[in-house]
């Protein structure tokens, strides 16, 4: 027996879906912004001469990389409050998860990019009398940053998709809203397809922006 699909009724649920989209974007943007800072700090920590800094950075990266995002989300939302003694709002928990998770992967991207710059570049800077941080700032970073953009774009897309896992900790993001609607109105095909299209719209837009940036940077 064929099921009748009513695609037009999706319009009725757009307010809820747009709310979900808003939280998906909010958590992605804030989480990735913090993740970017974490990645920069721990990425440089991974190549620091100081053994303690290097050790802390390595432990952070290995723990995050070695556990599933879903486990991290559940642990931070359900387990961490029992340790620290107060609850964490689900949206805040969601931002923490995305930030910590993307931070670890971005740290590896930063490390790889900095280490990929030829040693001669740093030597040339130092031989001119620039100190270590000037050499990093004016010579290594600008070149490393350019190389970071393709893998960073990749990580941004992965993290955006990872926000869908936050529905298990009750973050009212896209798929969470979709499940609520579909459960009440028995319109799984219409709603879940729309949700998928929303995700695709975000990631395709991001891909496009990244391609433009890459092209611009290649001009020289």
């Amino acid at each position: 027996m064929a099921v009748e699909f009513n695609w037009l009724q999706v319009i009725d649920f757009l307010p809820e879906l747009v709310t979900g989209l808003y939280y998906t974007l909010l958590i992605s943007v804030v989480g990735l912004a913090i993740g970017f800072i974490l990645g920069g700090v721990f990425g440089l920590g991974r190549i620091a001469n100081n053994k303690v800094i290097k050790g802390i950075s390595t432990v952070y990266v290995e723990i995050i990389r070695g556990t599933p995002v879903l486990v991290q989300a559940i642990w931070i939302y359900f387990a961490l409050p029992l340790i620290i003694g107060f609850e964490i709002e689900s949206i805040i928990a969601g931002i923490i998860v995305i930030a910590l998770n993307s931070g670890a992967y971005i740290a590896e991207i930063v490390r790889g990019a900095v280490q990929s710059i030829d040693r001669g570049q740093a030597e040339a800077g130092r031989s001119l009398g620039l100190n270590h941080s000037q050499t990093m700032r004016y010579i290594i970073w600008p070149q490393a940053f350019k190389r970071m953009i393709p893998p960073l774009g990749n990580q941004f897309i992965i993290s955006i998709k990872d926000t869908s896992l936050l529905s298990v900790i009750l973050v009212p993001e896209l798929i969470f809203q979709g499940r609520l609607i579909a459960a009440n109105h028995f319109n799984a095909v219409e709603i879940y397809t729309t949700v998928a299209v929303f995700y695709l719209a975000i990631t395709l837009t991001l891909s496009f922006i990244l391609r433009v940036i890459e092209r611009r940077l290649d001009i020289q």
């Binding site: 040339a124 001119l128 070149q143 350019k146």
Partner: peptide
């Protein structure tokens, strides 16, 4: 050492110009 290096110019086999 940074101060000493300002007085000692160096030219490398691979040039090592800053490509950016």
């Amino acid at each position: 050492i940074n101060l000493v290096r300002t007085e000692v110019g160096m030219v490398f086999q691979q040039f090592n110009l800053f490509p950016h």
